[in-house]
Design a protein around this nucleic acid. Structure first.
Length: 491
RNA sequence: CGGGGUGUAGCGUAGCCCGGUUAGCGCGCCUGCUUUGGGAGCAGGAGGUCGCAAGUUCGAAUCUUGCCACCCCGACCA
């Protein structure tokens, strides 16, 4: 094996970038902080979209689309919301260009200044709630269960492929409800959709919980989240679901007449996951040979590579390979038969390994004669020669086995990297040693959380739902605490 | 925006201190032959405004000044 890219041990972030590049997922663009998502990377996102979209529809939601531009004044309506996003907004101020009078290309036409500047959405609560005002008069108009697939822009200082870019793709759900209880129910319902998706499709176990005040979404009453652990011991927020209370309804004057004939403000939620999930997928499963994809999100689930010495063998082997390919497709497997004559088999083996294709079949003259095929699974790199009788069923169950194995592997990694800390010494030494999730007592104050963050870079990832009350003392301040929360350094 | 660094072929780089042939090498690319069960070998070939601009000089990738871009570290974040 030629070693021309980094291992996780040597340099984790270089390893990550190498995978993104070599697997053809994305590349840097001409625009600072923005990436080009390449076809293979976009195909993974499309698989995610398809699965999530179905889950949203199955829970009663519909898609819609709201404008990219948001009038600046909308932002100042909700005080916490502006504060949270003001520092990272791109703003459109003009609507026309003209030829430079000095003949040096093109300049902004100062005469074409907008009366009101337009903010490029960093999230759409404001424009959506301004719209919902028109949609709601009576309790009969509720609930509104809308999702939008869109791009958003947040002008980030430091960017990383998929994990943090100035522009990214996501879905944002925005719902409006008659009662507080119903809105809270929605928030939890969606969090469960996200955790199901993470575990069943991405094969990544997640912790479910709520955010501390410091980490809460700007404008939310409560933020729920799913948190995943990456192989370098850092946590990654994989999805959030917000209970917005009546904050936006009040800010945008969205009222309805209740069953009792009273005028009341609507209750709201919003929730989202982004292309960041692609980054999570990479960091959760991949190894030093390249990307490893869970079968349910792999753009190619099985690749077939013919092996031959001459034209005659090529014809025979490809014919058999085509039969196998048809067979697998009949089973609903996404197959690629790579019969290109421009690359050697060894080159192809490495190529599909980089790209994380779950199952590789190789077939040569020997196999044609014996009625066999060589099968290699990407997760363990285990190799075996099997009969082509019933190959469809064989690969189907192998794919399902790989999906399960990836989940189990990730779960056992998380378990062996989740620690309990009772003293400050334990807390800091775990962080410096290996990272991971740390369960520790916290006195519940924002000040303590802030101090811990300043001293260790670790933050409270979530206050987990599993309600194990336990008396203890805050790991930092020593004040009494009623439960442990989850700390980690995070992306 | 502060502190540090780097710009040489598609990518990675040598040369820069100490100015002097046609700017060298690896990967990749193209052609041909031999190859093909884990990144093929040989032969030939194409590809460069040395980031941009000005200056010093007989002569600049190399020295000086200005500008631009990108990267790393910090403050901010899904």
């Amino acid at each position: 094996m030629a070693k021309d890219f980094s291992t996780r041990e040597e340099n984790y972030s270089k390893w990550y970038n190498d995978i993104v590049q070599r697997a053809g997922l994305a590349e840097a663009s001409a625009v600072r902080g923005c990436m080009v998502i390449k076809p293979y990377g976009y195909a993974i996102w499309e698989k995610m979209q398809a699965a999530l979209d179905k889950m949203f529809k199955d829970t009663g939601h519909s898609n819609a689309y709201f404008p990219l531009f948001i009038p600046k004044s909308f932002f100042s309506r909700e005080a916490d919301h502006v504060k949270g996003f003001a520092k990272e907004c791109a703003v459109v101020t003009h609507y026309r260009l003209k030829n430079d009078p000095d003949g040096k290309g093109i300049v902004v036409d100062e005469d074409a200044k907008l009366e009101e500047e337009l903010v490029i959405r960093p999230t759409s609560e404001t424009i959506i709630w301004d719209t919902y005002r028109q949609w709601v008069q009576s309790y009969r108009d509720l609930p509104i269960l809308v999702n939008q697939w869109a791009n958003v822009v947040r002008w980030e200082m430091r960017t990383r492929m998929f994990l943090r870019t100035a522009e990214f793709l996501w879905q944002e759900g925005h719902t409006a409800h008659e009662t507080k209880e119903e809105a809270i129910g929605e928030t939890y319902k969606i969090l469960n959709v996200y955790s199901d998706f993470a575990e069943k499709f991405m094969a990544i176990p997640v912790l479910k919980g709520s955010k501390s005040e410091n980490e809460r979404f700007a404008g939310a009453v409560e933020t729920l989240c799913i948190e995943a652990l990456m192989q370098d011991g850092k946590a990654l927020q994989a999805g959030t679901s917000h209970f917005l209370g009546q904050n936006f309804a009040k800010a945008f004057d969205v009222k309805f007449t209740s069953r009792e004939g009273k005028l009341e403000h609507v209750w709201a939620t919003s929730w989202g996951v982004s292309t960041r999930l692609v980054g999570a997928l990479i960091m959760a499963h991949s190894d030093d040979h390249g990307l490893v994809l869970p079968p349910k999100l792999a753009p190619i689930q099985s690749v077939i590579i013919p092996i031959y010495r001459n034209d005659e063998q090529y014809a025979i082997v490809c014919q058999r390979a085509k039969e196998i390919s048809d067979n697998l497709e009949k089973e609903g497997i996404i197959v690629k038969l790579d019969d290109r004559d421009t690359h050697k088999p060894g080159w192809k083996f490495n190529e599909y390994e980089f790209k994380g294709v779950p199952v590789r079949l190789a077939i040569g003259p020997r196999d044609v004669e014996n009625g066999t095929v060589e099968v290699v699974r990407r997760d363990t790199l285990g190799k075996e020669v099997v009969s082509i009788d019933n190959i469809g069923n064989y690969v189907t169950s192998l794919l399902s086995d790989i999906q399960d194995n990836l989940y189990k592997r990730a779960l056992s990694f998380r378990e062996s990297n989740t620690f309990v800390a009772d003293t400050w010494e334990e807390f800091t030494s775990i962080l410096d040693d290996k990272g991971g999730f740390i369960l520790a007592h916290w006195d519940g104050t924002a000040e303590t959380e802030q101090k811990i963050k300043e001293e260790t870079k670790a933050t409270i990832r979530c206050i987990p739902f599993d309600d194990n009350k336990e008396q203890g003392r805050c790991v930092y301040s020593g004040k009494p605490s009623e439960r442990r929360v989850v700390f980690a350094r995070a992306y």
